[in-house]
Design a binder for these strands. Structure first.
Lengths: 220, 220
DNA sequence: TAGATTGTTAATCGATTAACAATC
DNA sequence: TAGATTGTTAATCGATTAACAATC
């Protein structure tokens, strides 16, 4: 066990490992090598070994990694050995869709509160959770030990919601709004806006279209 | 204009620039410096200048970047000076939520077809688009010049859908299913699974909880 | 034992940042 | 002109990959 600084790139790969290990576990595969993992996950085996070695010596030379043991360890690393309570702010289409993933959010993550600004949504239920007004956000986050907030409100409201999450002592935010949130450095933010993803994908499309780069302002 | 290889990191920042530039344009701000951009977007100004300089000399020394001109240029770089047709496969909750973003997808990206496997969804409308059976995917993608596919089907079906998109000649895929898709190297895939994001965020939560690392298996 | 595979060091590769001459 | 800001080179920083001794 080192105490180097772990990079974000490493942390982002851990859930990917976990997901595949869970599948192996379901199939009752007892051990797996870094080579096998690398092949399935499109990663370099050396990278996988290095990633895991940051946190401990989980493997056995000549054998590989014990699937159940590695699952247990990664869950510990990701704090998923305890229940992590999550709040969802914004009960529009996207928010409702995400709240349905509660079932998928095994591994101890759970959306336990949903907030919305719209008066006619407040009080209604969504997946057995009663939608609360945003005024109640700070109190509810505090009293329910909510550690992560998912922002699915419109663009212009995102920063205000983030401010309230911060005020309530949130640890991390997953932001689906297309805005750069300003938060204190101890609060982790991940951008999850899919329109940005789509636009960057468009860049790679020219393969099929011959890269026609004629000078439009030639006549000058 | 260089012809170096442009890294994915650079390409992913371009839509972020574009988004903020569009806002400046709306506010009728005529020019912007790399310093201002950097401050608003939490990026190093030198990085912004370098990113843009890969594609051309868009700025003016002593002045900064002309907002409208830079918007035009970034849109060209991202192929958004033409309409990019997008298909959505999987009309569940998440798929429906995303299809509502069509309005947001200014900048010339448009979901033009929606597919689903479920017989009782086929034929119904979603945002004025008739849901088609997945059998029709290959033909529709080809005949409508669809370049990007968004996968919102369940886990186990994702690879099959990806195979069909590839067969139809798709250029890029945005994958919301928690699977590593195997596709030929000329097809670009972005993972957009939010459960993975959430799990990696959980890693950063220990700040508040004192990192209690007691050996559970001491008595041995 | 022989074969396999880890953990880790060293080498490589790539991305970010600093610094500054050029110039508007 | 003086001040501001670009484009770009060089320096730094960080992440990935190769290689291999240790060892199951």
């Amino acid at each position: 066990m080192k105490s180097e600084k772990i990079s974000d790139a490493v942390v982002r790969r851990l859930p990917v490992y976990l997901r595949f290990l869970n599948e192996l576990s379901r199939r009752e595969v007892p051990t797996v090598s870094s080579q096998e993992l690398g092949q399935k996950l499109d990663l370099n085996p050396a990278q996988i070994r290095k990633d895991l070695a940051y946190f401990g010596d989980f493997g056995r030379k000549g054998i590989g990694y014990d699937v159940s043991y590695l699952i247990e360890k990664i869950r510990q690393i990701l704090n998923l050995d305890q229940q992590i309570n999550v709040a969802l702010i914004g009960a529009g289409n996207l928010g409702q869709a995400l709240s349905n993933y509660n079932a998928y959010l095994k591994d101890n993550m759970k959306i336990v509160a949903v907030f919305d600004a719209s008066p006619h949504k407040i009080g209604t239920q969504i997946n057995n959770i009663t939608i609360q007004p945003i005024d109640e956000l700070v109190d509810t986050v505090r009293s329910n030990n909510i550690r992560i907030g998912i922002i699915t409100v419109p663009d212009v409201e995102a920063q205000r919601v983030a401010d309230q999450l911060v005020a309530a002592g949130i640890g991390a935010i997953l932001n689906f709004a297309p805005t750069i949130l300003k938060v204190p450095s101890e609060v982790r933010v991940h951008a999850a806006d899919f329109t940005t993803d789509l636009m960057s994908l468009a860049y790679y499309l020219d393969a099929g279209k011959e890269h026609t780069e004629h000078d439009a302002k030639m006549a000058d």
